[in-house]
Amino acid sequence: MTTLRENYDALLLDLDGTLYQGPQEIPGAREALATGTQPCYYVTNNASRSPGDVAEHLTELGFAADESTVVTSSQSAARLLAENVAPGSAVLVVGTEALADEVRNVGLRPVRSFEDAPAAVVQGHSPTTDWAILAEATLAIRAGAVWVAANLDSTLPTERGLVLGNGSMVAALRAATSREPLVAGKPAAPLMEDAMRRSGCVRPLVVGDRLDTDIEGASNVGLDSLLVLTGVSTAIDVLRAAPEQRPTYLASALDALNRPADESLVGEDSRWSVDFDGTDLVIEPTADSTEPVDSTELLRVVAVGAWKFPDFVRITSTTPAVSAVVSGWGA
């Protein structure tokens, strides 16, 4: 039996919402990755921690990781800075000291004040970001500084739920400056390109929990993707997904990596009919069955119809078990 992961030469794994929520491992994630020989690279939009700190956290949770296998948006942001300003230039850092360290690593000088005449502004998530540093960044950007955002994630998953992410802070500067930043993290290409370069892989699989970052990021660089429903994106998000945000595979959890690929492949299934009546998608089994309806299995089939007829209003069925599952999607 060929498993899903065996079709690829590396796994490019998201972290928040895919492997852990805050300090806690997502149940079963560690065991799912422990099988197989494909190298795992941890690709995160979160720019608040250094690669070493991320690797340490992963190791504490039982994942096989070291600094060389962690690729962060802060590293990609620093690369973009180095490509756009002269060596030794001052860069105003809106973010943590870990982000400032990446700026130093590419030969630039991190500062925290507009008075230091920064040639660029780099912005990454930090729980201590306040009005004062955003004001300094506003002044610099309005004066013409290059602006690089580590990512545009509007929210950040935590053990308490979703909280505002770096993208929400970027939105504040966008409103104040009428400028758009260069973006390093997913779904923009730089982070994925850096991950592929680091891994040396030819055919990697991108794995994540967000359609608007992980899956769209994979699409933007022509890679296959697996969406796991353990984090941000939900069933209704899948059904309403734009073309660039449609995953190759869909699963409820990471253990799908160790099962046959066709079990997680998004596509039509002869056991189900999906018809459009001009308003609603109508879902029915094609044969009598007493087996329970698996929500994720059905979602993989219905998604194809939803993407074909994106103007559908509701999803309906005359089969009570199907209706019960669909109602749980919020569709």
Rank of each mutant, 00 (worst) to 15 (best):
T72A: 02
A143V: 09
A176Q: 03
R79Y: 01
I141T: 12
P87V: 06
Q75F: 00
P181R: 06
G185W: 05
W147R: 12
A184F: 00
G95W: 01
V183R: 03
R179C: 13
L108Y: 08
R79I: 09
V146P: 00
V85P: 03
A119N: 01
M169N: 14
V148F: 02
S113M: 06
V121Q: 13
P181M: 08
V71G: 03
S168P: 05
L152D: 08
A175S: 13
P127G: 13
T69Y: 00
A172S: 15
G88Y: 05
S76A: 15
D194C: 00
L134Y: 12
W147D: 11
L173Q: 05
E193A: 14
L99E: 03
V93G: 00
H125N: 08
L191I: 11
G185S: 06
T96S: 15
T96W: 01
S178K: 05
S178Q: 08
V94Q: 04
D101G: 06
M169F: 15
G95H: 00
S76G: 11
L108E: 08
A149M: 07
V70K: 04
S178F: 07
P187C: 14
T129K: 14
T72C: 01
E136C: 14
L80E: 03
L164C: 11
S89R: 01
V183W: 02
V183S: 02
T177N: 04
T128R: 14
D153I: 03
V183P: 04
L108I: 07
L162Q: 10
V85S: 07
T158P: 03
F114H: 10
A137E: 05
E83D: 15
S73G: 01
D153T: 03
V146I: 13
N105L: 05
W147K: 12
A149L: 07
P127L: 12
R174Q: 15
V183M: 02
A82M: 02
Q123H: 15
